[in-house]
Design a protein around this nucleic acid. Sequence first.
DNA 1: CCCTTTTTCGTCACCATGACGATAAGCGCC
DNA 2: GGCGCTTATCGTCATGGTGACGAAAAAGGG
Lengths: 225, 225
Amino acid sequence: MADYPEFSVTADLVVLTVRDAALQVLLVRRGVEPYRGAWALPGGFVHADEDLDAAAVRELHEETGLTAPGGHLEQLASYGTPDRDPRGRVVTVAYLALLPDLPTPVAGSDAAGAAWVTLPVAELAFDHARILADGVERARAKLEYTPLATAFCPPEFTISELRAVYETVWGARLDPRNFHRKVTSTPGFVEPVGRSVTAERGRPAQLFRRGPARVLHPPMLRPGS
Amino acid sequence: MADYPEFSVTADLVVLTVRDAALQVLLVRRGVEPYRGAWALPGGFVHADEDLDAAAVRELHEETGLTAPGGHLEQLASYGTPDRDPRGRVVTVAYLALLPDLPTPVAGSDAAGAAWVTLPVAELAFDHARILADGVERARAKLEYTPLATAFCPPEFTISELRAVYETVWGARLDPRNFHRKVTSTPGFVEPVGRSVTAERGRPAQLFRRGPARVLHPPMLRPGS
DNA sequence: CCCTTTTTCGTCACCATGACGATAAGCGCC
DNA sequence: GGCGCTTATCGTCATGGTGACGAAAAAGGG
């Protein structure tokens, strides 16, 4: 019947963050063939005695220097078209990471030149454009029915910061008053910290931290649907 | 740095159907070690020059003898814990298939004894219990915001049959009147065929076919949430 | 013809939501 | 200090989706 071919398995990462009112993705410049010099998703081969999730966490740490405290990491999908890598048969298990806008530079990184790139991205190596598109769509969808937008925020944040995340990821404007009511009335979404901070302008805003909810009831639906 | 170990890659299937008012999964009895004689998900190794999706379609055809017309097939997740298969390093790309209750027997199948088993299932080989649980949860969630319940139905069906699918997969009773209003008022969910059929008892019911919608607006939410 | 069953249509109260007004509370400036 | 600007936060109101339930329609069986 079938032959049992040998595969290489990589764990690649779609690392998203919100910086400067823009959705950005962490990319690396490839230093070796194929696609030398092109942008690519960070990632690498899964080690011999390593779990897939562990490989993703390791790659994330190697590329960003962080263990993503407060961030989010989940499996996205797997890609294994026979000719997707000219070096041979490679199956990539893609992961989606959502991180807050960290003041930490990408320096100390393993890759030769990692950088945050604002979406949309022009061209990527391999089938990474497709993987990136799938990751972005997953993130957009998950903001609707999970509190995952808080993964883009620091441990303590204001409702306005949270709204800016939604507006950036969805590319749509949300009414500040209705958004405030919705977030504070959804059980377990956010919890008040008790303190307030004053931004550059306007009335001081109350600080919140992430709540215990894992899903939003009812969901936060995208406008125009 | 890293070594580049060799992996075997399999495509395993969580094939679900609704039969006899029960949610059932297609399982095979393993004829070889390891886990000889135990129930397992159908599946097999991905061929040398074969896409992952193509391998899933091929395995589905080999096990059920069908190309799943009107059914649904999507990638579920990948599993690659180092010790999940005692024969070596195996990564499984799991797929979820939703099929109507076909009068076709599983005969002519590749596996030694494939059968429909009513959930919940006692014990499975490898980590297939985990994969099955993930597949069932995915199916339950997708019924909420997609018209995928029609994948469990024949090409033409009544609202009651569709409701029976929801009730079986969710394990909850739904009000027939509200369900009827919801389904027929959601744009693109179902389309009237124009004919009616009379069941064993009661007033004849109108026949419907699947509509063009790919998502449900608004979603059909599970009770008790 | 009456009873049972299932389908299908209506009614009503309630809740979440979108659109928007109004107030509160900071800052900079004259 | 007073004024204007900006942002945060609270309220109001109409609308639409939903759960609970009544009621009529349309079959079959005694």
